[in-house]
Design a protein around this nucleic acid. Structure first.
Lengths: 196, 196
DNA sequence: GTCTATACACTGATAGAC
DNA sequence: GTCTATCAGTGTATAGAC
C-alpha cells in the first residue's frame, strides 16, 4: 500500500491509488469502492476529484502510467550511452522498478470493457510509449528489416513483463539479474542475425 | 465464435464456451450472462449444467485448459525427438495453436478474485502443466543450475504469450515464424552458457 | 433441460447536507 | 472536500413451472 505525505493534494492521492489498483488487477476487477477504501474515503467522494467516473479515471491513470513509462524508458536509454546491451539493461532495470503493467490483460480484457474511442486512444499511447522507444533501440541492429525491429521490441517487453509475473519465490536470483542474463543471451544469439 | 455439432452434449457446450470467454477476458470481465448469451440460453439455465456457480465453473474450465496444455505440450515435445531446438519449436507451435492463455492476468487478477483454496489449486496445476514440461526440456541444458532451467522455462512461456498478445497487424510474418526465429536467437545465444 | 420470476448483493452514479 | 442517502442497473443465485 502506498504512503502519502500529509499534504499531498487529494486529487493526486486518488489518481495515484487508482493507478496502482488498476495496474494490478485491471479495469473490471477494481471497483470504485476498492479505490475509496484504500483512501479511507467514501465511494461518492471520489466524484469530487474525478467527476468523469470510473472509465474516465481509468483512462487518465493509464495514460499517466504510459507517459511515465515513456519518459522513464527514454531517460534510461539515453543515459546508457551508445551501447545496445547497456541500453537494454537500463530499459529493463527501469521497467522492473515500476509496478506491473500487464500489456496482454490491457489489450484483451480492459480495452473491450471501455468505450471504443477511449480504447483506441489508449492503444495509440501504448504504442507510442512502450513500443516506439524500444523499437528505436533495435532499429540500429535491423536497419533493413523494420518489422524485425518491431517484434524484437515486443519480445523484449514480453520478457520483462514475464519476469514480473514470476512469483517472488521462483528463483533465488533477483529479477534485474535475470533480466541482464536474458539480455546477454538474446544479444549473443542476435549477433548471427544483425545486419550491421 | 465456436461451432458445435448438433448433438454435442449440452454440458460440454457450456464448459467449452466458458473456457473460451474466461481465457480471453478473465474471471471478473466475464459474466454468466455473457456465457449464456453466447450459448443462446438464459443465465439461470447454466445452473442445471454447472450447479456450483461461477467460481466453480471458472476453476473447472481453467483446470481443463491447463490439463490440455500439459498433454499437448508433452506430446509435441515427445514427438520432436531429442533435439532441443526442435522440441521448443514444437512446444511453441502447439501453444500458438491454442486460445490465448494470459498467465500474468491469471496470477494477478483472476486468482485474487476467487477463494484462496481454489487459487492455490490453480497455481499448482499451472505449475505442473506449463512450467514442469518446459523446465524438463531446459534441464538437459542446465544440469548444474536448476533455477536457470526454471526461468528459461518461464522466459519461453512469456515469449510465446507475448507473441499472442501482439496485434495481428503487427508484423507481416505469421506468429509461428516469429516463434521459430526467436527460438533460434535464444538457443544461439544460450550456446555460450550451456553446461553440456 | 430450459424457461420465467424473483431475491439479494454489489456497483456506478447523483443529490444535497454539513 | 467529505459525508449520508438513495437509485437504477447489473450480477449471482434459487425456486418452481413447463
Amino acid at each position: 500500500m502506498q504512503r502519502f505525505s500529509q499534504n499531498t493534494p487529494a486529487r493526486e492521492r486518488v489518481i495515484s491509488t487508482a493507478e496502482t489498483l488498476f495496474a494490478e488487477r485491471g479495469y473490471a476487477a477494481v471497483t470504485l469502492r476498492d479505490i475509496a477504501d484504500a483512501l479511507q474515503m467514501r465511494q461518492a467522494s471520489l466524484y469530487h476529484h474525478v467527476p468523469g467516473g470510473k472509465e474516465a479515471l481509468f483512462v487518465e491513470v493509464t495514460e499517466r502510467t504510459l507517459h511515465r513509462h515513456r519518459a522513464g524508458l527514454e531517460a534510461a536509454i539515453d543515459a546508457a550511452g551508445d551501447d545496445l546491451r547497456a541500453q537494454l539493461k537500463a530499459a529493463a532495470g527501469w521497467l522492473l522498478s515500476q509496478p506491473v503493467m500487464n500489456y496482454g490483460r490491457m489489450m484483451q480484457s480492459d480495452m473491450p470493457a471501455i468505450g471504443i474511442p477511449h480504447a483506441e486512444q489508449l492503444r495509440k499511447t501504448t504504442n507510442d510509449s512502450l513500443f516506439v522507444p524500444l523499437r528505436r533501440v533495435f532499429e540500429g541492429v535491423f536497419r533493413q528489416s523494420p518489422h524485425r525491429a518491431s517484434y524484437m521490441a515486443g519480445t523484449f517487453l514480453s520478457l520483462v513483463e514475464g519476469l514480473q509475473n514470476l512469483p517472488e519465490s521462483f528463483s533465488p536470483v533477483p529479477r534485474p539479474h535475470m533480466a541482464d542474463f536474458l539480455i546477454d543471451v538474446l544479444l549473443d544469439g542476435l549477433n548471427a542475425y544483425r545486419e550491421v
